Computed example of a mutant assay.
Amino acid sequence: MNLSRTLNFLCILVGGLVAFYAQAQQNQNAYILIGGIALLIFGVYRTSRNIPSKLDNEDETFLKTEKEDEV
């Protein structure tokens, strides 16, 4: 696993744990909760940037191959 994926995973894990810890306390600290959620969202955003879109490769769509097969 490369460094970027490890960093993303750690951001998600630490952010989730911090947000869960801040939510579980009886006297909730809003700043810690916001920081944990922000770290969690940052990790999810960085992870989603590396996932390719379905629409990037339009040559391999079902409709285009179906039209080619019928002709």
Rank of each mutant, 00 (worst) to 15 (best):
D56V: 14
K54G: 06
N27D: 13
Q28E: 08
T47Y: 05
N8K: 09
T61S: 10
Y45T: 03
G15M: 00
N27P: 12
L63W: 11
D69K: 13
L13N: 01
V14F: 02
A24C: 01
I37S: 11
I51E: 04
Y21M: 11
Q23K: 01
R46H: 10
F42H: 07
N57D: 15
G15V: 00
G15F: 01
L7V: 05
L13V: 09
P52T: 02
V18G: 02
F42E: 08
M1D: 12
S4A: 12
E70M: 14
V71K: 15
I32F: 07
G15W: 02
I41E: 00
I37N: 11
A19H: 02
L55K: 15
Y21W: 01
L10Y: 04
V18M: 10
Y45V: 15
T65A: 13
V14W: 01
Q26Y: 05
T61C: 03
G36F: 00
G16L: 02
Q26W: 13
K54W: 03
L55Y: 14
L63N: 07
G43I: 02
V18C: 08
I37Q: 14
Y45S: 13
I41T: 13
D69I: 14
L63E: 15
G43H: 00
F62M: 10
A24W: 00
D69V: 11
L39S: 09
V44E: 06
F9M: 13
N8F: 01
F62S: 08
